[in-house]
Design a protein around this nucleic acid. Sequence first.
DNA 1: GGGTACGGTGGGAGCGCTCCCATGTGTGAT
DNA 2: ATCACACATGGGAGCGCTCCCACCGTACCC
Lengths: 352, 352
Amino acid sequence: MTARTARTRGGKAPTLEEVAARAGVGRGTVSRVINGSPRVSAPTRAAVEAAIAELGYVPNRAARALAANRADAIALVVPEPEARFFAEPYFSDIVSGVGEALAETGMQLLLTFAGGARERHRLAQYLAAHRVDGVLLVSVRADDPLPDLLAGTGIPTVISGRRSAAEPLPSVDSDNAGGARTAVAHLLARGRRTIATITGRLEVYGAACRLDGYRGALTEAGHGPDESLIAVADFTEEGGRRAMRELLARRPALDAVFAASDVMAAGARQTLRAAGRRIPDDVALIGFDDSAIARHMDPPLTSVRQPIEEMGRAMARLILSEAGPTASGKPEPGGDPRQLVLPTELVVRGSS
Amino acid sequence: MTARTARTRGGKAPTLEEVAARAGVGRGTVSRVINGSPRVSAPTRAAVEAAIAELGYVPNRAARALAANRADAIALVVPEPEARFFAEPYFSDIVSGVGEALAETGMQLLLTFAGGARERHRLAQYLAAHRVDGVLLVSVRADDPLPDLLAGTGIPTVISGRRSAAEPLPSVDSDNAGGARTAVAHLLARGRRTIATITGRLEVYGAACRLDGYRGALTEAGHGPDESLIAVADFTEEGGRRAMRELLARRPALDAVFAASDVMAAGARQTLRAAGRRIPDDVALIGFDDSAIARHMDPPLTSVRQPIEEMGRAMARLILSEAGPTASGKPEPGGDPRQLVLPTELVVRGSS
DNA sequence: GGGTACGGTGGGAGCGCTCCCATGTGTGAT
DNA sequence: ATCACACATGGGAGCGCTCCCACCGTACCC
């Protein structure tokens, strides 16, 4: 009986059928055991599990996907060109968070890179045709067509970082405004009076939120709005340098700067140094992201930490719940429990 | 016209059969067209291609995998716990290199995390059963059982970073010894005389190579070996600090340090500062990896850059050639063209 | 003119699984 | 004892594709 099985081929993986034969049951029963159906008696289940263990059986994913019309796979889409800026700390952390949460469920993680706008159409079609159970989108820009394309195909999608206050897609974001508010409050608490900020491009929703947080903290403390303390940059180091020069020119007496990213803070620091300002004695400096450069800057940079790995886990959980029960991509009405905002944390170091 | 057709079918994707009907041909012919078989006449091929475009047809991967007994997928295995050290610049670059090279071939990239030793056995079994066409292993330790497990299953495997001089697996590595040699030669050229080094754990082959390169450059320049200038650390910042203290205690007059990683260089820098040594005036400092912290250190750190993205591309190409033609996992005899060593590059900055 | 070859083509037979319906087998109620 | 209804189980019918063999027609040969 097993002779036939063993003869099939040397290195061939055992099939459901073979497990069934070995356990002396039918295919259906083995399938039920594997999928955790309750409609199997205890002794039968034990027999099947023994057979599975003896044969070292692992289900064939392709066959399962074909028969069940699901993929047991989640795609993580990375918009290659743009992603680079955000990349440093972001990418590996989000991936490991997602991977961790997915590993527990037996779902596979597919990594996909989106190229130009043209390719994104193909990509959406591909994802639909390959029947991934869900798509995770990271660091997409507000004008990216991909999210809507995906929504059109009905594939459950979760986005990291809302594109606007009214993000229609399920999303996971960090509390950008809260983080900025905490940072500025910290500066105020340390006696700083003239606090400037360097923002990212304000079309990026997260950048706008950070600016809101900055304004909020100042307003709360009774400081009137002062546009001359706000410089818009673009999340780059060079942008940070330039913005800092503007700020110094406009408000030479400033005594603190909140930069909306560590990289811009690094740029600002250089300009500050060049201008002879000491950190933190003359000017306190705070960044955002708590990336590797923050820890290694001189002095070490106080920064707002985002729980990136945790965001990855949350995204995974969200997509699992989206793809799981209802298996329908239609946006739910009513208040949305599918918009997660995770708290940030201020990591105080020598620069403030 | 194309998009319209494709989009209207909200739920179901078109099948091969439907394309065949539309083009007025049989299933076999459509299959041949899709797989680029030459045995199709030009007019027929054109008709089929038109039908494919009109329907927005994309082959069902699961069905193809099941029927053809191949997966069109490559798994990238990341040993989670350990990977963290190397992670910063490494991970995202290698992934994007691999992804780029794979995207062109229609292969999927699967991301897998290996847990403890126990899980690695399961993982090897999984990979075998799920019939990935190849496995890419990054930053594995010399004593990791996974590579041999994989070799046992016959799955083509490529490793990044050799585990020893006699790495049996096809591998892609950077020229660690050459990079170290260049760094030390640069130091010598700038007139430094007493050059120390901080190494990683020497069980790690790459760390040993860097030490060899350091020794080689010194020997070439006629300097005799001097063990008191060598401190072994563990690739961590704290290790770098400690090693630097040892070195300073043993050889107070040293005027240059080559650290085998940027992170250790960062640690060394702190100790140097604390000891009142100026960089680069009193002591020149060089790191390895050219990571983000190198660029943002003060002064910016001279560092040896590894072509990590290029290494990713090379790994992808290697695994494709391994998995493709022969489809056999047995190690080839004779001289091995499957051991790639990519050149490194010294990025000179203010610290040297 | 008939025969031979061969490029082109259609379609049957699975790949290993899930789904679901039909078929036991046991329990409790009548 | 009979019926009803649960529960447990077996196995047929595909999922959409590739592989391969049989078949058709045409060009070419004798």
